[in-house]
């Protein structure tokens, strides 16, 4: 009888801690986007170079913007890949995480991912601060960095992704469908005319 009661107690405690670790919504001020499996989530953790964390192949300053970054969450030691910042024009999160390389941060944002597609959720960071700091920063560094790196583009109208040299070269080479200019012309004739 004693063993049965203890087993039940152990199961209840483990289940309750699982539920706790799976929910980081309390206290979040993240903006909802209506994404697959979306949960608002604020938590603390260490900003890491994912490649370094996995393999021991490390670089100075987390690769100085050349590597993908993630957060090892303090509550459960889970490595959370950070795919996006808060901006809505195809911007990753490296520029916003890099100033905190190997530092403890608090973040607020969205965990996303449908369980049919992924065994673990991935993160969009909307706000960040070094742990202990009072003020949050909005994660908007990507376009600021791009504008600073591409001052000659300021006079050209349109968003960055219409005038980025790398993108322009790629589309010039393979077209918008990636199948060549003839395929683009055929598609435009069929869909837009």
């Amino acid at each position: 009888m004693m063993r049965i009661q203890l087993s039940a107690l152990a199961a209840a405690v483990i289940l309750s801690t699982t539920a706790y670790a799976g929910s980081f919504s309390e206290g979040s001020n993240a903006k909802e986007w209506g994404l697959f499996g979306e949960e608002t989530a604020t938590f603390s953790g260490k900003v890491v170079d994912i490649l370094c964390e996995l393999s021991g192949d490390c670089a100075d300053n987390c690769g100085d913007g050349t590597r993908q970054l993630g957060i090892v969450r303090a509550a459960d030691n889970v490595l959370v890949p950070v795919l996006k910042n808060r901006q809505s024009s195809f911007n990753g999160a490296v520029a916003d995480l890099l100033p905190y390389c190997n530092k403890m941060v608090d973040v607020d944002g969205l965990l996303v991912g449908d369980e049919e597609q992924t065994a673990a959720k991935l993160y969009m960071v909307q706000f960040i601060r070094e742990t202990g700091a009072a003020e949050w920063s909005k994660t908007t560094l990507w376009t600021k960095k791009w504008n600073a790196d591409n001052p000659e583009k300021k006079a050209i109208k349109g968003p960055w992704f219409r005038k980025d040299d790398r993108v322009v070269r790629q589309i010039e080479k393979d077209g918008y469908l990636g199948l060549g200019k003839e395929a683009d012309e055929k598609f435009i004739a069929e869909w837009y005319n």
Partner: peptide, 9 residues
């Protein structure tokens, strides 16, 4: 292409 250029994994 836009997302890769934007640094999204």
């Amino acid at each position: 292409v836009w997302c890769a250029a934007g640094g999204i994994p």
